[in-house]
């Protein structure tokens, strides 16, 4: 029997990618009977599904966010251990994006398709690294799918943050960072750089930091910024969701330096428009070189691009002699927007 064409058993629907022979949707935007969730960010993990297949970490994140509505039948998948659903074998592999993030390999009658979800290739002290999986079709994101996006070494960005604090020790440094993933990664990188002072958190960050710690990710001394005095916050590093950096909430901080940790900070105009004084180019997504390198590594003859700047990535992939096309999926956000 010949291999089925991937496009015949994985379909794009308004709800999301549908793996037809397993009757399973990947990161569906509406409640479905069976969902596989790549990671816990809100545009991928949504409430109300019946059966939910995800890593234990992602299930815990969904539980923390959606409580009773996080899925009626959760099933934890372990990295690298196949799960059989009818004729389809489903294997979760590390994606290196945030804690619990996974790429999902679907194998059906000898045809292999990998849905990457969001991923990055850099080392991240808070989650296991991306593992390339050989496949017939690689379904990739393209959030930073333009050759102007080349993330610098995150250690240099952390050094900038610490230098800013040393330069003006009477001010607080308010770092806007997404509550899931970016926040904990910035903290872990600060610890690696030798910063062992307490780090102050906006209320929206606290629960997820505790969750990370319960999975064995050490974050060092953390304090609530809401309960701290102005004097304690002088010279301190404070993390808050990106939205809160322009909020009344920040009035409690002594003359804060506003920093934002995001891949978009690469573009000056973006940083200037948002009034960012200290742009930190730290991203949990693959940059341009990593996107192309990953396509190379998984060595798929065909690449489908889900969200981001698809056209440039498709153009570049086509130049390498592979087939590439855009999947018009709805419902995904730009990072940190």
């Amino acid at each position: 029997m010949s291999q089925p064409a991937p496009a015949d058993w994985i379909k794009v629907t308004p709800v999301g990618l549908h793996v037809v022979p397993a009757d399973l949707h990947v990161d569906p935007v509406r409640p479905v009977a069976r969902a596989a969730i790549t990671h816990g960010h809100g545009d991928h993990a949504r409430p109300g599904h019946d059966a939910v297949l995800a890593t234990a970490e992602t299930l815990a994140i969904m539980k923390a966010r959606f409580a009773d509505d996080s899925g009626r039948q959760p099933q934890a998948a372990r990295y690298g251990e196949p799960i059989r659903l009818g004729e389809v074998e489903v294997t979760f592999m590390p994606a290196g994006h945030v804690l619990g993030s996974a790429q999902i390999l679907f194998e059906y009658r000898g045809s292999r398709v990998v849905v990457s979800g969001d991923y990055k290739r850099r080392r991240d002290p808070t989650c296991p690294p991306f593992e390339p999986v050989a496949c017939d079709v690689f379904i990739t994101e393209a959030t930073f799918g333009l050759p102007v996006f080349r993330h610098p070494d995150d250690r240099d960005e952390i050094a900038k943050l610490l230098a800013a604090r040393d330069r003006e020790p009477e001010r607080a440094i308010l770092v806007g960072a997404y509550a899931l993933g970016k926040c904990q990664r910035v903290i872990a990188l600060l610890r690696e750089a030798g910063h062992d002072a307490p780090i102050y958190l906006h209320g929206a960050q606290e629960a997820l930091c505790r969750l990370y710690e319960s999975f064995g990710v050490a974050l060092g001394p953390l304090r609530s910024a809401t309960e701290a005095t102005k004097a304690e916050l002088a010279g301190a590093i404070v993390l808050a969701p990106p939205g809160a950096t322009a909020d009344r909430w920040m009035r409690r901080l002594p003359d804060p330096v506003t920093a934002v940790a995001s891949g978009w900070m690469r573009i000056r105009q973006r940083a200037k428009q948002r009034g960012v004084e200290l742009p930190l180019v730290i991203s949990d997504h693959a940059d341009w070189d990593e996107l192309l390198q990953t396509v190379e590594d998984v060595n798929a003859p065909e690449v489908w691009v889900t969200h981001g700047r698809e056209e440039a990535l498709i153009h570049a992939v086509t130049l390498t002699g592979r087939r590439a096309r855009a999947l018009a999926l709805v419902g995904f956000d730009e990072e940190g927007q």
Binding site: L146, P147, V148, F149, R150, R266, R268, Q269, R309, A312
Partner: peptide, 27 residues
């Protein structure tokens, strides 16, 4: 040094020539 189509899209996105060139220049 850079594919003209990719450069064009990048320049459209960034909007500043020096910045586009600085970011896109291959290592």
């Amino acid at each position: 040094r850079v594919d003209p189509i990719l450069f064009g899209w990048s320049y459209d996105y960034v909007g500043d020539l020096a910045e586009t060139c600085a970011l896109i220049w291959p290592t």
